[in-house]
Amino acid sequence: MELLVAACVGMTTMAAVYLILQRRSFPVIVGMSLLSYSVNVFLFATGGLAIDAPPLLTGPVPDAPMTDPLPQALVLTAIVISFGMTAVVVVMSLGAFFQSRSDRIDLDPNAGPDSAPATGAAIGIDPAERGGT
């Protein structure tokens, strides 16, 4: 099971890093979400992997199998924060797209006009239509 979890975290992180390095905001956002998934699974595994074991023991059972409850609390915090953060990124990228009519994420001032400008149709929203009608 360790191998499965480790491979899972590794593959997700790899895909996430690839996506984050893209030029357009949509792949970057998907990459950020993937990265937060892989972080969460990783955090879960840091207490050691245990199946069918309770995190909290009640009563006098000193030798019962148990799983580390702390990583679960950490994951909960991390999930809440990354969920909020994804929402923030989505809203800000939409704002940037509507204001500058381009969803390129880089800021190179020397780059000429976008070689393949992102149109609203490409991502399913046309800002002109949205504002005009």
Partner: peptide
């Protein structure tokens, strides 16, 4: 321009936060 720079700032810091969590997980383990 400011919001575009803001998106970049957010993405860099989110990636940093992810690395932070990986680091804390490793240290905790």
């Amino acid at each position: 321009p400011r919001i575009k720079a803001g998106v970049q700032y957010v993405v860099v810091n989110l990636a940093g936060s992810a690395v932070f969590l990986f680091a804390l997980g490793t240290i905790y383990a």
